[in-house]
């Protein structure tokens, strides 16, 4: 305890908002994004064209939508590894509905409802049975995609109605796609929920100390269940977009998306241990991931190398804060 004389009045805050903004993780992400943007514009003459920039956004909007909900889930101390499998299952169900003659609105509804249902299933297993989410969602990852494989085998569903193509291929204005608009709109909503509502505050609190939250009358299980439902819902929405963009469903659709979504979340400054993070960081990280993969694409780097890159990036962004802290402690010890 520091023996400062008793301050009768305790100020709300001491740090200057501006200086803390300059040294924030988000500011660093802006710098990184700008640097990659500049490098890309030198690396390829086609990069600065508005339409190629528009194409770039398709690299992250679908995963980014999942990452928004995943960010809340990871902040609360849980994780969902089954998101890509949910995309596959939802897409398969939409494909079956197409064969049965369903129209565009019903298809979109099916995708969203299947996603929500899968999320609720994960949430029930975690909160009712008290199982660790990493184990539950590894299980459901195999389960959901397994169902897609059983239904489809090595077949593919095609024949989606023309109007269905709007979700993944349409533009709302000039080069701004529906996907990008949806991503930015969703980001705004998630930002508000996480940073401006009591629900968001409870999510942070749970991630820092779930036991104390329970003692404080926070309905921890209910909030975690809602977060799993939201993650499923966003996976369902992402499934509608991907299926619409590709115009077909294969059981291997969206393979590896869970890792890219988690990488976005962690790169965005969300603590993998829970309790800290921001939506702005996740949005910036989504842009960076899009810029990097698009840049590598322009340079004709094959997909396999890209997945190596994603893996390395994930390890680095998880390890960096931990190594950094150890180095600092070592110096002061």
């Amino acid at each position: 305890m520091t023996d400062t004389p008793a301050p009768r009045h305790i100020p709300d805050r001491l740090d200057k908002p501006l200086s803390s903004a300059i040294f924030s993780w988000e500011a660093l992400l802006v710098v990184i994004a700008s640097a990659i943007f500049i490098v890309n514009s030198f690396a390829s003459p086609y990069f600065l064209d508005p339409w190629s920039l528009s194409d770039l956004t398709f690299n992250f909007t679908e995963k980014g939508l999942i990452a928004l909900a995943m960010a809340l889930l990871i902040i609360s101390g849980e994780i969902d590894l089954s998101v890509a499998a949910i995309v596959a299952l939802a897409s398969t169900m939409m494909g079956m509905a197409v064969q049965a003659g369903a129209g565009t609105p019903l298809l979109a509804l099916i995708g969203i409802v299947v996603g929500l249902g899968c999320g609720a299933f994960n949430g029930l297993l975690v909160t009712r049975l008290g199982l660790p989410s990493i184990v539950v969602t590894i299980g459901t990852m195999s389960l959901f995609r397994g169902i897609a494989f059983i239904i489809l085998g090595d077949q593919a569903y095609k024949g989606y109605p023309e109007s269905f193509a709007f979700f993944g291929q349409g533009y709302v204005w000039w080069v701004f796609s529906f996907e990008l608009a949806l991503f930015l709109g969703a980001a705004l909503i998630y930002w508000f929920v996480l940073h401006r509502t009591s629900f968001g505050r409870r999510v942070f609190a749970i991630g820092n100390n779930p036991v104390a939250c329970q003692f404080s009358g926070v309905r921890v299980d209910r909030i975690k269940f809602i977060l799993f439902c939201l993650t499923g819902l966003m996976s369902g929405i992402a499934s509608v977009l991907i299926t619409s963009r590709l115009g077909s469903t294969r059981p291997s659709i969206a393979q590896g998306y869970e890792l890219e979504a988690i990488t976005m979340v962690v790169l965005g400054g969300v603590s993998i241990l829970g309790g800290a993070g921001s939506i702005l960081g996740v949005v910036l990280a989504a842009f960076i991931m899009g810029l990097v993969t698009f840049g590598l694409g322009l340079l004709n780097v094959p997909g396999i190398v890209m997945s190596i890159f994603i893996g390395l990036l994930l390890i680095i962004v998880i390890a960096l804060p931990i190594v950094w802290r150890r180095l600092r402690e070592g110096r002061f010890a």
Partner: peptide, 26 residues
Amino acid sequence: GVVIGLPIFQNVSLPSLARTSKSGVL
């Protein structure tokens, strides 16, 4: 008891959030 990682004021308001917020908005 305490939620380490959250500031003092957020620890104090945690069980009273329903009262300090309006329609769920902080």
